[in-house]
């Protein structure tokens, strides 16, 4: 379990490598209920959209970023805010390398602290997507889980 004890700016999350297949992309699009053809129809993606192949949709990318952060934090990590910008499409045959670093630890509120994390999704060394996640973490092992924060006090 990760808490804010000893957590400092510059701390690195473990790298995560994710091989991407057509199945990964189609399954992510279907599970997120996104039926736009560039996420499941290779011929349409190439011939009508000028893309190299089908591309991973933004919901699936978001899912990988959230998973990356909570794999590290454990279930008490509660994401309050995240954003990402896609620079290059992610296609079957790519391998994503996720790298994350703690950019800020904000002062404590209600037993938890906000931790800002910068994430890079690299494909062949080039930036495919950049992301920022603001995560609530318990201050100590005995602090309440941020999930127990009263609705009226939750202010991401």
């Amino acid at each position: 379990m990760i808490t804010c004890v000893g957590l400092t700016v510059g701390a690195r999350l473990p790298d995560l490598r994710i091989p991407i297949s057509a199945k990964t992309i189609v399954m992510g699009a279907a599970a997120s209920r996104d039926w736009q053809p560039q996420h499941h129809d290779s011929a349409w993606a190439r011939d009508s959209a000028g893309l190299p192949d089908i591309i991973m949709n933004n919901y699936t990318q978001a899912g990988f970023f959230c998973r990356y952060v909570t794999d590290w934090s454990g279930p008490d990590g509660r994401i309050g805010r995240f954003k990402f910008a896609m620079k290059k499409p992610i296609c079957p045959g790519d391998e994503i390398l996720l790298q994350g670093v703690v950019e800020g630890v904000l002062p404590s509120v209600n037993g938890y602290s906000w931790v800002d994390i910068i994430i890079k999704a690299l494909v062949d060394g080039a930036l495919a997507t950049s992301a920022e996640v603001r995560l609530a973490l318990p201050n100590t092992a005995s602090s309440p889980s941020p999930w127990r924060c009263a609705r009226a006090l939750w202010a991401p």
């Binding site: 994710i18 992510g28 699936t60 899912g63 998973r67 999930w147």
Partner: peptide, 27 residues
């Protein structure tokens, strides 16, 4: 069942999505 399909797609093992016992005290 709908959201577990998504968890499978991104291989997300967060117990809050899968495990009622783990989720009970948090969510």
């Amino acid at each position: 069942g709908l959201w577990l399909n998504f968890c499978v797609a991104v291989q997300d093992a967060n117990p809050l999505y899968w495990n009622y016992a783990a989720a009970l005290g948090r969510t």
